[in-house]
Design a protein around this nucleic acid. Structure first.
Lengths: 281, 281
DNA sequence: GGGTATTTGTCCGTATGTATT
DNA sequence: AAATACATACGGACAAATACC
């Protein structure tokens, strides 16, 4: 009761959305209508919808109205894989577009679509750079040592899915892995390429996962609302060879609103998605 | 140039923050001062600071002013572990509070604190429930079958760190794992307990990671700003026994602003943090 | 403890611009 | 071209939180 008016209005609308009275895609009453319904000024109504916007419940479309957000069917990326091949980058990466599920409570009636998808990647943009402090530390090389940077935009079914940059010490190129500095996809995967060309085997890798607000480039590429309400999940993958020496660092960024990640440890049954989706009626 | 005024003001302030002219913790000019500086109305100034707030750059304190956000030293949780013991819940979970690092670019001068921390957990709140559809699917039991829910609040150094709920089929209790329905921590971990009491060995587990906006309970518990700009990262861990049968489901929620997650696959050297933090000068 | 100044939070009103139908 | 609906910007008023004397 002590809540400010715009919060009470927002809470009431949220209740309607969560109760399904305003289903996904439905248009909310216009600001003018809400103004009359709640007997508040237009600015107060707008404060309420802003509150709903930052929570990802509604979106506004100029000239049209305010609408309940449609739930996005997420891409599912598995972070664990065979270290001998898993590059998390170029090469074969299989993505499920399906529904391992949201949280426990909500009980959406949504289509189950479990289909394996291979992302398409842009031609890599190659840069020769000096190692930053972080990079030098991760790759155990001197700061300002020369590294190769391979940057790619990745899509699934045409929708922007991930931005990715991999770094390799220039010494690998000097030792013969010359394709690293060619602006061409390494289709078999850089991990396999380095194994075949330099006998560097990836014995393991470490991912560090962080959530943060998107920067301007990411907002543009992913087509995120520019009010920053959708955060991005970034992974930093450091690959180690058989001697425990880091030889690559891959930074990937995914928009948090359309991605899920899976980590499997030990023996895990194959088809979780179908299992969790099959509701016995 | 076509940018609205509030964006120009926000961009100018953002530039000052990123350039270090306004270091973390510093107070921004008051709304009145900014009003004069940019020759705009107070509401326009407030729109600009709102833009900065949703991007996590500043925070406002009523009666005091607007301040540049202080960077939080994140908790680091490792998601991969020995499936035979890793519960991701009660029992021994080691957390590093340290700095695997943010993104590549920023070059903070911040203290390196790598110390192993054991989280403290509240006494579990036990509930006997009927399985939801998701739960039934994950645990391969009938919908509306009876399950035990163990809910805990977890803290590190007194700061709220995670909310966690584990579900077990009631059949486990009937078969003798009676401590599951006691409101007492299972210190050795429920995974070990089930192995010792019922000879159920956890052969593997799967984590599904999702990012979403916090609900009200989470906002309150984690002390998050109630404008929903900080999202939460939620993990759903399904544990499988030696027969590929799921026997537990653990939902955990972590505030995204003070947590990082690590996934290790294959052979990974032990001490990455120190390595990445040690800058040769 | 009380009072006052400062600063942000809420709410109102109005006007004009811009995007969509 | 006109109507509709949201976006931006201005102005003012009072409330609530905080700090300081």
């Amino acid at each position: 009761m002590a809540d400010p008016m715009y919060r009470q209005i927002a809470d009431d609308l949220r209740r309607q959305i969560e109760a399904g009275e305003l289903p996904p895609g439905a248009q909310l009453p216009t600001e003018l209508e809400l103004r009359e319904k709640y007997d508040a000024s237009r600015n107060t109504i707008r404060d309420a919808t802003k509150w709903l916007i930052t929570r990802g419940l509604v979106e506004t479309r100029p000239g049209q109205g305010t609408f309940v957000i449609e739930r996005i069917i997420p891409f599912v990326t598995t972070l664990t894989g065979d270290p001998k091949t898993a590059s998390g980058g170029e090469g074969h990466t299989y993505i499920e577009r399906g529904v391992p599920g949201g949280e426990a409570e909500p009980d959406y009636d949504r289509e189950v679509m479990v289909s394996r998808r291979t992302p398409q990647a842009s031609q890599p943009k190659i840069e020769i750079q000096q190692a930053s402090a972080l990079l030098a530390g991760e790759l155990s090389i001197e700061e300002n040592a020369i590294v190769v940077s391979r940057h790619q935009e990745r899509f699934i079914d045409g929708t922007p899915w991930s931005l990715q940059t991999s770094f390799y010490p220039m010494s690998l190129v000097e030792r013969g892995a010359t394709r690293l500095i060619q602006a061409q996809n390494i289709l078999e995967g850089t991990v396999e390429y380095l194994r075949d060309s330099l006998d560097i085997k990836q014995a393991g890798y470490r991912d560090v996962i962080t959530v943060r607000a998107p920067d301007e480039t990411e907002t543009r590429f992913f087509n995120l609302p520019d009010d920053g309400r959708v955060s991005v999940l970034s992974t930093r993958r450091t690959g180690y060879d058989q001697n425990g020496q880091a030889f690559r660092l891959t930074l990937s960024v995914y928009p948090a609103d359309r991605n899920q990640f899976v980590v499997k440890v030990g023996e895990v049954p194959a088809d979780p998605t179908a299992a969790s989706a099959n509701r016995q009626s």
